[in-house]
Amino acid sequence: MPDLIPFAQWLRATPASEWINSSTWVWPLCESLHFMGLSLLIGITGFFDVRLMGFFRRVSVEAARALMPFALVGFAINIATGLVFLTGLPEQYVSNRVWWFKVGFIVLAGLNAGFYETRLSANVLAPDPHGETPRAAKLVGFVSLVSWFAVLYCGRMLAFIGDAF
C-alpha cells in the first residue's frame, strides 16, 4: 500500500475539507444520499444478478438489464458522496484497511461487470431469452451479488474494525 498519509494531510487542509467539516448538514445529507444510492445500486444490480444466476426466468435477461441506468445513477451518487466523506476525513479512510477492502470489492465488481459486457452478454441473450443461463453467466451474477454486499459490509464495518475511527 502506498503511503497516502501526506496526501491525506494535504487534502484535509484544503478549503473543501474545512467546509465539509464545519457544516452541520453536509455530512448527514451525504449519508442519506449514500444510502439511497446503495439502494438503487444493490436493488437493480441484484435483480439482474439473480436473473443471471437463473432465477426469475419469466423476465428475459434483456428486460432485467433495462433498469441498469438507474444502478449507474446510484453508483454515481455514491462515488460523489463518497468523495465528500473522503475529502472530509481523508486520513481516517486511507489508513483504514477495511476501507481498502471496500475499494477492492468495488474494483472487483467493476471488472466483473466489464467482463460480462464485453465477453459474455451476447452468448447470454441468444438463443432463448427465457431459458437457462450459461454457467459463466451464473458465476458473473454470483460474483457481482457477493461483491456489492461486501462493499456494503466493509463500508458499514470500517467504523468498527481497524483503528481509524
Binding site: 439511497m36 446503495l38 439502494s39 438503487l40 444493490i42 436493488g43 437493480i44 441484484g46 435483480f47 456494503l152
Partner: peptide, 8 residues
C-alpha cells in the same frame, strides 16, 4: 438494501 432495493 434488500427492502428498498426490491421496492425500487
Amino acid at each position: 438494501a434488500i427492502v428498498v432495493g426490491a421496492n425500487v
